[in-house]
Lab assay of single mutants.
Amino acid sequence: MAAAAAAGAGPEMVRGQVFDVGPRYTNLSYIGEGAYGMVCSAYDNVNKVRVAIKKISPFEHQTYCQRTLREIKILLRFRHENIIGINDIIRAPTIEQMKDVYIVQDLMETDLYKLLKTQHLSNDHICYFLYQILRGLKYIHSANVLHRDLKPSNLLLNTTCDLKICDFGLARVADPDHDHTGFLTEYVATRWYRAPEIMLNSKGYTKSIDIWSVGCILAEMLSNRPIFPGKHYLDQLNHILGILGSPSQEDLNCIINLKARNYLLSLPHKNKVPWNRLFPNADSKALDLLDKMLTFNPHKRIEVEQALAHPYLEQYYDPSDEPIAEAPFKFDMELDDLPKEKLKELIFEETARFQPGYRS
């Protein structure tokens, strides 16, 4: 834990890192770190609560700039109880001085990944967590956004079992017609939660990839272990087919990539493993919904509104309290091709509203 900075004593240090967030945020305490930044909790002297502050230093890398800009653009436009918001952003007053960006968010005690390492969940908890994931996802999908990296560590939890989806750095506007060349190379989302079509096709992607990830998360809540822990690309596919069985001819016809289709045709026939054999203690309604989410063919996979209306979630289902976005989200430009200098300018502009004396 960093010592509390005395008023006016300059930035606090946390594990050798400068955290320049005073005077409003003090009493910093280390939480963890990701690929390009550290997260601390801090005391907000204005709202009198502890908050989470993520320090991001992305400006050396085009990919990190892209992810940072995506996350900020999306989260500043989203407003939903099951999606983490941005409360404040701290950065230098000029673009030349801006080396880091500090993002202030609600402090959540833990995440689903940490929880599943230590606790076996009751059916009631599984049901409530799944409902909140789908409630947040309904809003995301209504904005025409794909999260693309749903996994237990991106689901934040607090002691009252509130759940918030975080990390929109890989999110995209849904565009089933656009052929994202190089899709697989830039697709760094965790393999275990990846839909089979991501490994088999490169053309376009749809909201059904997020539903697949939610199915993987439900299976993990039922058993405290990942359902498809593939060691590499082909191993991942083999794990999936080992449980779902061989795809039907109709399902194979959806695979545009001939090499991928021929690979699947070359494999020995596998039978589907019954879900109640894998999860003998699970609620039968939970397994019915799991089956509809972990469907090989993305066109037959359940959609988020149908999933919310499934009998497993009937005690929570309330369409009048499951809000959607006001308007579909649009990125003005494809960020993939922009140089990091341009992305830095866009991050600077996007964060201006939090600067003292800002006038829109």
Results as ranks from 00 to 15, higher is better:
Gly37Arg: 13
Pro274Lys: 04
Phe279Asn: 08
Asn238Thr: 13
Asp337Gln: 04
Asn82Gln: 12
Met108Asn: 02
Glu197Asp: 15
Phe78Ala: 02
Arg79Lys: 13
Asp162Cys: 02
Lys330Met: 15
Ile198Lys: 09
Ile31Phe: 14
Thr206Ile: 11
Leu346Asn: 12
Thr159Leu: 04
Ile74Gln: 03
Val39Arg: 04
Val14Leu: 12
Pro311Phe: 10
Ser41Met: 14
Glu314Gly: 02
Phe129Gln: 08
Leu130Met: 15
Cys65Glu: 13
Ile255Val: 00
Trp192Gln: 11
Pro274Cys: 07
Leu308His: 03
Lys340Phe: 02
Trp275Pro: 09
Asn82Val: 03
Met199Ser: 07
Ile324Val: 00
Leu116Gly: 13
Ile324Asp: 06
Tyr317Glu: 00
Ile255Ser: 12
Ala189Asp: 06
Leu237Pro: 11
Lys73Phe: 09
Ile89Ala: 03
Ala309Ile: 08
Arg148Asn: 11
Pro226Trp: 02
Gly357Ile: 04
Lys203Arg: 11
Glu81Val: 13
Tyr187His: 07
Asn271Ser: 01
Glu197Lys: 13
Val101Met: 15
Gly182Ser: 09
Ile140Lys: 11
Tyr233Gly: 05
Ile302Cys: 04
Phe19Tyr: 15
Phe329His: 03
Ile240Leu: 04
Glu197Gly: 01
Ala219Gln: 10
Val104Asp: 14
Tyr193His: 10
Ala143Cys: 10
Pro311Asn: 09
Tyr316Cys: 00
Arg277Ile: 15
Arg135Ile: 01
Ala286Ser: 13
Ile140Phe: 14
Arg225Glu: 04
Asp283Thr: 05
Gln132Cys: 07
Tyr316Arg: 03
Arg67Tyr: 13
Asp175Phe: 10
Ala352Ser: 13
Cys127Phe: 13
Asp162Ser: 02
Asp44Ser: 05
Ser248Thr: 13
Leu150Asp: 09
Gln66Val: 14
Pro274Arg: 09
Pro58Gln: 13
Asn201Leu: 09
Asn87Ser: 03
Asn27Ile: 15
Glu349Leu: 03
Pro196Ala: 08
Glu12Gly: 10
Asp124Gly: 12
Gln315Val: 00
Lys259Trp: 02
Pro23Ala: 11
Pro268Leu: 12
Pro196Gly: 00
Glu250Met: 03
Tyr312Lys: 07
Asp149Met: 07
Glu334Lys: 13
Pro311Met: 00
Leu244Tyr: 01
Asn262Ala: 04
Lys73Ser: 07
Trp192Gly: 12
Leu157Glu: 08
Phe331Leu: 15
Leu163Tyr: 04
Asp336His: 01
Pro152Ala: 11
Asp111Ser: 02
Asn154Val: 05
Cys254Trp: 08
Ile256Gln: 00
Lys231Asp: 03
Val214Ile: 08
Tyr43Ala: 12
Asn253Trp: 09
Phe168Lys: 07
Asp88His: 08
Glu345Val: 14
Ala7His: 06
Ala174Asn: 02
Ser29Val: 10
Val188Leu: 10
Asn253Pro: 04
Leu294Thr: 09
Lys117Ile: 11
Ala282Asn: 01
Leu343Trp: 02
Asn281Trp: 02
Ile347Asn: 14
Met293Gln: 02
Leu150Ala: 02
Ile89Lys: 08
Glu60Phe: 11
Ile256Glu: 10
Leu69Ser: 13
Cys166Phe: 13
Glu250Lys: 09
Ala5Met: 09
Gly37Ile: 07
Ala9His: 05
His299Val: 09
Gly8Arg: 13
Met199Arg: 00
Pro356His: 13
Lys138Gly: 08
Glu71Trp: 01
Gln236Ala: 07
Leu156Lys: 06
Lys55Ile: 14
Lys342Glu: 02
Tyr317Asp: 08
Ala307Lys: 01
Thr351Asn: 10
Gly22Met: 03
Leu155Ile: 10
Leu237Ser: 04
Arg277Gly: 01
Leu346Cys: 06
Leu290Glu: 07
Asn276Cys: 03
Glu322His: 01
Ala327Glu: 11
Pro152Thr: 13
Asp111Thr: 08
Lys340Leu: 11
Arg50Asn: 12
Gly204Ala: 12
Arg148Cys: 05
His232Gly: 00
Leu184Phe: 07
Pro311Ser: 12
Arg194Ser: 15
Arg91Leu: 14
Ile209Val: 06
Gln355Glu: 05
Pro176Phe: 09
Met221Trp: 04
Leu156His: 05
Leu267Gln: 15
Gln66Cys: 12
Glu186Lys: 12
Leu107Ser: 03
Lys270Glu: 01
Lys48Leu: 13
Ala309Lys: 02
Arg277Asp: 12
Tyr193Ser: 11
Gln62His: 15
Asn253Ile: 15
Ala307Leu: 07
Asp111Lys: 03
Ser29Gln: 00
Asn262Tyr: 14
Lys344Val: 04
Thr206Asn: 13
Ala3Ile: 00
Thr68Pro: 15
Ser41Cys: 13
Tyr233His: 14
Ile126Met: 11
Tyr128Asn: 14
Ala3Trp: 08
Ile56Asn: 15
Lys272Pro: 09
Arg79Val: 14
Leu335Asp: 09
Ser284Trp: 05
Met98Asn: 02
Lys54Trp: 02
Cys166Gly: 11
Asp175Asn: 12
Leu346Ile: 05
Gln62Asp: 13
Asn123Gln: 09
Asp124Gln: 12
Thr63Glu: 10
Arg261Phe: 05
Tyr102Phe: 15
Gly242Asp: 13
Leu156Asp: 04
Asn45Pro: 06
Pro339Val: 11
Phe78Met: 06
Arg24Ser: 14
Ala309Gln: 05
Asp100Phe: 12
Arg91Thr: 01
Leu265Gln: 14
Asn238Arg: 02
Tyr128Arg: 05
Tyr139Gly: 09
Glu314Gln: 11
Ala189Val: 14
Gln62Met: 14
Phe59Glu: 11
Asp288Ala: 12
Asn201Tyr: 14
Ile126His: 08
Phe183Gln: 04
Ser360Gln: 09
Arg135Val: 01
Leu267Lys: 05
Ala5Gln: 11
Val14Met: 09
Phe78Thr: 07
Asp235Trp: 01
Ser213Leu: 01
Asp283Tyr: 14
Gln236His: 13
Leu252Arg: 11
Leu346Gln: 14
His232Tyr: 11
Ala6Lys: 05
Asn297Leu: 08
Ser320His: 01
Asp44Cys: 13
Pro268Arg: 09
Ala143Glu: 07
Gly22Asn: 12
Leu265Arg: 06
Ala260Trp: 02
Arg135Asp: 08
His61Gly: 01
Pro298His: 14
Pro229Ile: 01
His310Ile: 08
Ile243Ala: 01
Asn158Ile: 15
Ala7Gly: 03
Asp179Gln: 02
Ala260Glu: 06
Ile56Lys: 15
Pro356Ile: 05
Ala9Met: 04
Lys114Tyr: 12
Asn281Ile: 15
Val51Pro: 11
Ser202Tyr: 11
Pro280Leu: 12
Leu258Ser: 03
Pro11Asn: 09
Trp212Ser: 12
Ser266Gln: 02
Gln97Lys: 15
Ile83Ala: 03
Val273Asn: 03
Gly182Leu: 10
Leu157Trp: 04
Ala282Lys: 02
Lys342His: 01
Gly136Asn: 06
Trp192Ile: 07
Asn144Glu: 03
Lys48Glu: 13
Met293Asp: 03
Gly85Gln: 13
Gly85Ser: 13
Lys207Arg: 12
His310Glu: 04
Leu313Tyr: 01
Ala6Ser: 13
Asn82Gly: 08
Gly10His: 07
Ile255Pro: 07
Ile227Phe: 15
His147Ala: 05
Ala143Lys: 04
His310Trp: 10
Glu326Ser: 09
Asp210His: 08
Val273His: 06
Ser202Thr: 09
Met199Ile: 14
Asn144Leu: 03
Ser360Tyr: 15
Tyr102Val: 09
Met333Leu: 15
Gly22Cys: 06
Val101Pro: 03
